[in-house]
């Protein structure tokens, strides 16, 4: 629906300051760096098979249909999370929510830009750092570049995306970010040893 009450009059109050969780936090260990990434635009996209083509067109990338995969184009990545569920992340400042608003094909798109926090884990020991709390096989054979999955890190749920041979993007909910970042930092410290 979106603009129920979009009104004219702008008393133009000053825009509130955005304060992302954990902004700027970084931990470096031998062989791996854990770093909070800047805010991004995100939607949780749900749609039946029949709507995928229309949504792909609107989003400018082909929504992946294979489990544990993602598709990326122009700073925008769509992660397959379930058979009718994608997490779309836009790092180029374009709002995917707006892109989907005009799609009449059956779907649900919900803005979750502020729900998630992204943490980059990069370096030769990145895999080991994440495996400190994630039970999945993260070898390149089992979890190649582009692989994406919702999973577990310790006692928190994360979404994991492999962005390069030695780099991952870990997404978690905002209030879990301190826990997840601390966990990854400990994992990084151990992976270095």
């Amino acid at each position: 629906m979106a603009k129920v009450a979009a009104k004219t009059a702008s008393t133009a109050s000053p825009s509130a300051e955005r304060r992302p969780a954990l902004a700027g936090r970084t931990v470096s260990a031998t062989g791996v760096k854990v770093e909070v990434l800047p805010p991004a635009e995100r939607i949780s996209l749900r749609a039946p098979e029949a709507s995928v083509a229309a949504l792909s067109k609107a989003l400018g990338l082909t929504l992946p249909k294979q489990p544990k995969t993602s598709a990326s184009k122009g700073g925008r990545t769509a992660l397959w999370l379930g058979p009718d569920e994608w997490l779309v992340i836009d790092e180029a400042g374009k709002d995917p929510l707006a892109d989907c608003a005009g799609v009449s094909a059956l779907h649900s798109s919900v803005g979750v830009s502020h729900r998630n926090i992204a943490i980059s884990v990069a370096g030769p020991a990145a895999e080991a750092a994440i495996n400190s709390g994630c039970p999945q096989d993260l070898s390149l054979e089992a979890f190649p570049v582009g692989a994406a999955s919702r999973t577990i890190l310790g006692k928190a749920e994360i979404v994991l995306l492999r962005t390069a041979d030695e780099a991952f993007r870990v997404e978690c909910w905002r209030s879990f970010s301190d826990y997840v970042f601390t966990f990854l930092s400990e994992g990084a410290r151990d992976a270095a040893g």
């Binding site: 489990p67 544990k68 058979p83 999945q136 919702r150 999973t151």
Partner: peptide
Amino acid sequence: MLLIRCPYCEEERPELEF
């Protein structure tokens, strides 16, 4: 910890996810 095959993910995944 068991491995459970998810018919949607089409692979075995660790029990902690289930």
